[in-house]
Amino acid sequence: MHRRLLAEFLGTGLLVAVVVGSGIAAERLSPDDVGLQLLQNSTATVLGLAVLILLFGPVSGAHFNPVVSVADWWLGRRSGGGLSGAELAAYVVAQGAGGIVGALLANVMFSVDAAMATTERTGTGLLAGEVVATAGLVLLIFALVRSGRAAVVAPAVGAYIGAAYWFTSSTSFANPAVTVGRMFTDTFAGIAPSSVLPFVGAQLVGGAVGVLLVLVLYPVPTPVRI
């Protein structure tokens, strides 16, 4: 278990470091072009996330996301697998701590002063974007796992998050641990503390929608390969 928790801590932390660090670099490289900044930020996130899943997946499953861990626990209750309640709690703590450390690490690497984020991310549209992004992420992961295609999770999840950066209004946080971590950097990727709770609430709703869709579309895990 200690290896799995370390993997979740490191994986979530490095994911946030990739998101925040590439956002800072994008701001500095393309200060007058927000679209180009987002392209640079999303490209780094796609590649970094896929690599991290490949690196830590064999150890912990590479959840890096409390919503994914909750979904794994819930779906596992029906099939006799997945995380136990105690394991779920430990995963969430490790992921949350990793997210915070990852943001602070990015600040240090780019010599950014420690400060809470001031970027307000509010509005019904952004919250709807988080519901959609998180529901799609949960559906994708468990659809692949339950249909015997877990080997392609890393590139598929990376591709989905990269696309969701652009097709959702919120730029697809889709992860409570990443959202909390991004509160600790007042940079391109930051989110103000006042915006965090609504975002996390929307992500939890999206996770529930994703789980329902999994149960409807893939009610029984099968080894089918397409």
Rank of each mutant, 00 (worst) to 15 (best):
V200N: 03
I191M: 03
V214Q: 03
Q203C: 13
A208N: 02
A202L: 12
T185G: 10
G201A: 15
V200I: 08
V196E: 06
F188D: 09
V224K: 13
F199E: 08
V216D: 08
P219D: 05
L215G: 04
P219H: 02
R225S: 12
I191W: 00
G207P: 08
A192C: 10
G207L: 06
S194L: 07
V200R: 04
I191S: 02
P193H: 13
V211M: 01
A202V: 14
P193C: 14
A189F: 08
L217A: 05
V211I: 04
L212I: 11
R225E: 11
G210T: 04
L204A: 12
F199I: 12
M183Y: 01
V196S: 05
P198L: 12
M183C: 07
T185C: 11
V209N: 00
G201I: 12
G210H: 00
V205A: 09
L213T: 07
L197W: 03
F184H: 10
A202T: 14
A189I: 11
F199K: 08
V205T: 08
Y218K: 06
V205H: 06
R182N: 15
V211W: 00
A202I: 13
F188L: 14
A202R: 13
L215D: 05
A192Q: 11
A189K: 09
G181N: 09
P198M: 13
G207A: 09
T222L: 02
R225M: 08
M183A: 11
S194I: 08
A192E: 15
L204H: 07
V214K: 01
G207F: 08
T185M: 07
P221D: 02
S195M: 11
V214M: 02
L212N: 11
L197C: 03
T222A: 05
P198A: 14
T185I: 09
L215Y: 06
F199Y: 15
F199V: 13
V196K: 06
R182K: 15
P221N: 01
V214S: 02
